[in-house]
Design a binder for these strands. Structure first.
Lengths: 209, 209
DNA sequence: AGTTTCGGTGTACAACTGTGCACAGAGTAT
DNA sequence: ATACTCTGTGCACAGTTGTACACCGAAACT
């Protein structure tokens, strides 16, 4: 039994994680806002009132989930950036990485894309802020690519927004897909869509008329 | 008093509409799935059990709301198609029409974009099916444009998907915006994004390598 | 060793939920 | 005028909800 030599902090962290995990498991079939505090504690295996030792409300737990989810998303970006074969097959590699990370973190991604548009205002806004941040980082990355290195900041932002949008909708579709060939089809179309979007790069010039 | 000479069918239709309207009003600040049958009937001014005279469950009401919402969306498309000045300034006009329709049907659009990703599976799927249908129609429309008239059906579908995606996210942003200058900024960026996307048309060729 | 701190328990309660049932009263059909 | 058909009402009931409160026992501190 390893609980024997468990410090108090550790124990607290553990049940905190259990609460977060329980919520994540439960939003698989229900929306977060229709999730009750008692359901979460029941799933986590603690008594309802224990919830308050960790979060002051369900909304607070939701915000914590956002933190957690974006931590895994940042891992993904780090993966993508450190991929040496990236520059040649950017699109192919990016989509591959995205698909892989969605598959190994389905609950987190599901939570994010759902609550991004539905959900309580504070949660919605927290997610959208993070996504915008992500888009900004992408924009600076884009500046290193051919054709785009002369673009204005706004143009880069717009292009980044476009790509992030696309990524969000790819994630949405991946989450709806269950069988692997549906996934393969999504991946194929996703790559095509991305290619179309970046195809604008060589031709683009701000304020065309 | 006009209720004096009200036929039974009319009366039933009226309270049915009241229920739909009540639900639409309530999802302004809560998500549909966390909406209770009693709340809806309370807002509509009828007794809870009367609900069942019109819908067998909240899910059924949700599906009815989808119908209603897409009816107003189809109006929008009709407007757009019949606009004579369309072909010259397609993008500018399209965005204008979109913004106008979102503003005059905020509750419907809010309901759609929220429940599209969250919400119960049947409702989610119903909405996504309609959106896909919309994308297909757009694809055939696109075939009439220069450069694109030689494209394969799949390429047209992909481009249409891209545009619809973009429209969805524009609607999402419009719904978050409250003050008119924020709206103006969204409109401006939306036009730029659309221009970028269609910019691919002249250069695009399937299976580039 | 004695005291304090604090994560988790158990009980309790008022508020709310969905829905079954009997019934009213107006619209409709005969 | 009489009988039937409905939409909407009223009441009831068991189940669930959030949270207040007193409490326990072990880790942490003195």
């Amino acid at each position: 039994m390893n609980t024997r030599t468990e410090t108090r902090q550790e124990r607290k962290q553990r049940t905190r994680q259990e609460l977060l995990g329980a919520a994540l498991r439960l939003v698989e079939d229900k929306s977060f806002s229709s999730l009750s505090l008692r359901e979460v504690t029941r799933e986590a295996g603690v008594v309802p009132t224990a919830f308050y030792r960790h979060f002051e409300s369900m909304e607070a737990l939701g915000l914590a989930l956002i933190d957690e989810s974006f931590r895994t998303l940042r891992e993904m970006i780090r993966d993508a950036r450190s991929d040496p074969s990236m520059f040649e097959h950017v699109i192919h590699r990016s989509v591959a990485i995205l698909v892989r990370h969605v598959n190994s973190n389905r609950p987190h991604f599901r939570f994010l894309v759902r609550e991004r548009s539905s959900g309580l205002a504070p949660i919605r806004h927290a997610i959208r802020a993070q996504v915008r941040l992500f888009a900004s980082e992408l924009a600076t990355d884009l500046a290193r690519f051919p054709y785009m290195n002369k673009w204005s900041t706004e143009d880069l932002q717009v292009m980044a927004g476009l790509i992030v949008n696309l990524m969000v909708s790819i994630v949405e579709e991946l989450l709806e897909a269950d069988d692997p060939e549906a996934e393969e089809e999504i991946r194929r179309l996703a790559e095509k869509q991305l290619r179309m979007v970046v195809m604008a790069a060589p031709t683009w010039r701000s304020k065309p008329n």
